[in-house]
Structure formats: C-alpha cells, structure tokens
Amino acid sequence: MRSRNFLYYRDGLWTLFSVVGQVYVRVTEDVQPMDIIKAYNEGVRTVSQDPTNVRVMQVTTPYDSDKGYGVAFCLLK
C-alpha cells in the first residue's frame, strides 16, 4: 500500500493537490476581508501588495490599539 502524501501520481506526472488550511492570525488595523496579507512585525500580519498564500476571509476581532493587533480568520493555499 502506498503512503498518502500531498502529491498524486498520474500518468508519469506528479500533481499537487489538497494543500489548503485555515488559521487565525494577528493583523494590523488596515486589514479587511479578501485582502492578501504578509508577515509584518512580531507575528502580526499586514496587507501585501505582492501575491502570497494567505487570504483574509473574515476579521473576527477588531483591531485593539492597546494590544496592537486584531484577529482574522485566513485561508492558506
């Protein structure tokens, strides 16, 4: 029996499939749903102008200036 992994062997080609995840991340005040984000400072993420693999689906906790971050539910692809 073959082990399961993220690559699928088909007709002599390897095809990447099923590398998707969902995470909660700390974000800056300017992050909105559907933004693409990148690492910024001490684990807090901010809006990215360049493509990344992290997209904001929903801001679950608004930005709190005392804490220095908000929380967003993100999709990793």
Results as ranks from 00 to 15, higher is better:
residue 18 S to T: 02
residue 18 S to V: 00
residue 20 V to G: 00
residue 20 V to N: 04
residue 22 Q to D: 00
residue 22 Q to P: 00
residue 23 V to H: 03
residue 23 V to W: 01
residue 23 V to K: 10
residue 24 Y to G: 02
residue 24 Y to H: 10
residue 25 V to I: 14
residue 25 V to W: 07
residue 25 V to R: 12
residue 26 R to V: 02
residue 26 R to G: 00
residue 26 R to K: 15
residue 26 R to F: 01
residue 27 V to N: 03
residue 28 T to N: 08
residue 29 E to Q: 12
residue 30 D to M: 04
residue 31 V to I: 06
residue 31 V to N: 05
residue 31 V to Y: 04
residue 32 Q to N: 13
residue 32 Q to D: 12
residue 32 Q to H: 15
residue 33 P to F: 11
residue 34 M to D: 14
residue 34 M to C: 12
residue 36 I to V: 14
residue 36 I to Q: 12
residue 37 I to P: 07
residue 37 I to A: 08
residue 37 I to V: 15
residue 38 K to G: 02
residue 38 K to A: 13
residue 38 K to E: 15
residue 38 K to T: 15
residue 38 K to F: 02
residue 38 K to H: 11
residue 39 A to R: 14
residue 39 A to H: 14
residue 39 A to D: 14
residue 40 Y to D: 14
residue 41 N to F: 05
residue 41 N to K: 13
residue 41 N to A: 09
residue 42 E to H: 09
residue 43 G to W: 05
residue 43 G to I: 03
residue 43 G to D: 07
residue 44 V to R: 08
residue 44 V to I: 15
residue 44 V to M: 07
residue 45 R to T: 11
residue 45 R to F: 15
residue 46 T to G: 12
residue 47 V to Y: 14
residue 48 S to V: 10
residue 48 S to L: 13
residue 49 Q to F: 15
residue 49 Q to L: 13
residue 49 Q to S: 15
residue 50 D to I: 10
residue 51 P to V: 14
residue 52 T to G: 04
residue 53 N to H: 11
residue 54 V to G: 02
residue 55 R to H: 10
residue 56 V to A: 08
residue 56 V to I: 13
residue 57 M to T: 09
residue 59 V to Q: 06
residue 59 V to Y: 03
residue 59 V to D: 01
residue 59 V to I: 11
residue 59 V to L: 09
residue 60 T to S: 10
residue 61 T to A: 07
residue 61 T to S: 12
residue 61 T to D: 11
residue 62 P to K: 08
residue 62 P to A: 09
residue 63 Y to H: 03
residue 63 Y to A: 00
residue 63 Y to E: 04
residue 64 D to F: 00
residue 65 S to H: 09
residue 66 D to P: 00
residue 66 D to F: 08
residue 66 D to M: 12
residue 66 D to R: 13
residue 66 D to G: 12
residue 66 D to S: 15
residue 69 Y to S: 02
residue 70 G to L: 01
residue 70 G to Y: 02
residue 71 V to E: 05
residue 71 V to F: 04
residue 71 V to A: 04
residue 72 A to K: 03
residue 73 F to Q: 08
residue 73 F to D: 06
residue 73 F to V: 01
residue 73 F to C: 07
residue 73 F to P: 00
residue 74 C to S: 05
residue 74 C to Q: 04
residue 74 C to M: 02
residue 74 C to W: 02
residue 75 L to T: 06
residue 75 L to E: 10
residue 75 L to A: 10
residue 76 L to R: 08
